[in-house]
Design a protein around this nucleic acid. Sequence first.
DNA 1: GCTGTAGAACTTTTT
DNA 2: GTTCTACAGC
Length: 766
Amino acid sequence: MNDSYGLSLPTHADNLLQGLNQQQREAVCLPDTHALILAGAGSGKTRVLTTRIAWLLSQQRVSPAGILAVTFTNKAAKEILTRLSSMLPLNVRGMWIGTFHGLCNRFLRAHHQVAQLPQAFQILDMQDQLAAIKRLYKQFDIDAVSTPPKQMQHFINSCKEDGLRADDVPANNINSRKNSEIYRLYEAQCQREGVVDFGELMLRSYEVLRDHATIRTHYQQRFRHILIDEFQDTNYMQYRWLKLFVSSDDAIQKNAVFAVGDDDQSIYSFRGARVDNMNDFMLDLKVKHQIKLEKNYRSYSNILDSANALISNNKHRLGKNLSTQAGAGEPVRVFEHISDMEEAFWLVDEVRQLLRDDDIHRRQIAVLYRSNAQSRIIETCLFNAGMPYKVYGGLRFFERAEIKHALAYLRLLDNPRDDTSFARVVNFPRRGIGAGSMETLQDIAKSENCALYDAVEKVDTRAKTNLVSFVEQIRAMRAQAVKLSLPDLVRYTLDASGLLSHYKKDNDGADRVENLEELIHAAENFCSQEGLMPDIAALQEVSWAAEEFDDLAKNNVAGETVETLTPLSLFLSHASLEAGDNQAQAGQDAVQLMTVHASKGLEFKVVFITGLEESLFPHENAMYAQDGLEEERRLLYVAITRARERLYLSYAQSRMLHGQRHYHIRSRFFDELPDRCLKWIRPKQNLYSDDIAQIGDKQTNLDELDTSTEQQSELRCGMQVFHTKFGEGKVLAVEGSGLDAKVQVQFKRHGSKWLVAHIAKLTVIA
DNA sequence: GCTGTAGAACTTTTT
DNA sequence: GTTCTACAGC
């Protein structure tokens, strides 16, 4: 029997619940009320969220159009869509599943008139935004030394995140008045150019919903079920945005918010994430259902118990303890090294051994570090050893310079008044239009209050010829553009702009030419079924919104010409919202290198966590604040829980940082891990003649066995020394000689201590 | 208008 | 130690 959504029931619902544990099942089958699901690492979070949607649909509790599911990353949104379509033979088209920004984009295109935006508005990524601010600085002669553009960018973004417009920013001193004035100018510039930044996508949608009861009520009634992934990562604005979808009106049927998150994995407070949203959510919406998913299906208990013990040191938690039935597994291996160099050598060696002895592939091995700078030395060693590796992070496809150039031309075809794009490519490839000409042009644009593109004809200096021929070129390309399909248009643009031939002439341009050709593929892909699906849905929404809110629109923006969304503008917003893969050397089986942040949500058979030293992990900038330290702890918690079978923790006594050798003691987090789960090992090294020593008790035995063969006899008063446990210190006194020699050392952080010279492992720093 | 060099910065990052 | 930015010089 078929129901209205094309699903056969109820057998399907039973199938969905197969293989779920008690808590998961409970979460999936919750009634239509608000709920908070505390989902620990590896507890099947995405599965629960996806199954919940499938179950709701199969139970006919909601139609696809009544689903709103929000994620942070495109990857997560895609994952949900893929899993969902494998669970249900359904049409995902009516659902709103996407990232916060992707959904805001869709929303604003649909309600562009109310939002006072051109329908084909373009989206500035961080790079574009910074460029726009710099352009503003030039135009208004703003002092970039006292207020650096980067700082301004941060200021603007955090204002928007807090829901503040330029008028709302408190301006009670010269500095804040200046800031809000620049913010105001920036807002005006964006509005004039028809561009929005990421923060604006959120804020503008929020304001539209807040100020237009008709629209708000419509969506409140439409979205019966609102589901949020990674709720601990939401910022203030996102939470407020979300709340606007929740009806407070008793007259209409209540909708239900299903928030999934893990406060222990909140590692993004530096970019505005508010864990407190979880508590606020419970209180604001009077949430009665809280379900903890604590069964872990990923790791053995030595790994899990380490993670649990560590995180229990945090004071502010909602409280959760992961457990597994997988058994203890191998102990967590802990290694100490003399230097970052030794650590990297050891790592390569260990990886080699893993590949040789065990049934492990390179791609199942992850090397994690706290900061990007640490990857260099590891990369060097892996490279020299001929070991394939992949580094995550760095420039993504759509962020590469040549791609940004090509996109700038495409944007100009879509909207010639996009000054950011104009400025980017007006002299690339070179057309003899330098800073001087641009300054003239910008002055005119400013005094005429028009776009750079329109200001060209008013130039009357020598610079005019080149500028006019550029504008002519764009005009000619625009004329061609309407005749071509998107992939052909991209191909044509690369040619006609001269970009392709420019890079072909360049001896080192082969990679860039390849990337540009890849851009054509990206366009083709985008047009093929799969790529376009969500955006076709967006187009349908737009036509629906035009009908639904026609009156509203007329009242707000009178006489605006009706524009249409071209495949080009859809492709351009896709390019801004999804910057593409950020891993280099895709494809082959390679060891995975990434920061701990980047590893969130992933899992590996073997995980190495490197650089576990005080002031690196926990990082020095976070060490002295309670909140900072707790977040560092969560960060390590995330790192540990990435491992399925085998976990290595390593630290080095010394490390090159900012061109200087630094000496650090091992991370304080080691003291928070349970001894019974750890195995302290000293690696076999050329420096040492003895074999690998296995040490049971890290506190005492390590020192005894650490009678390194290094020369340490010539300790003298006044020397700066380094001790693995106590850190840096100064030698105050030396007594005796040979094996009986004792030294008194004044440590910076641990006071003065008497040590037996040949037992205590002291490294002379200076 | 372009190129080279001195100076500063430098934790984590998605959209 | 490296990498980006800004300004000076050709």
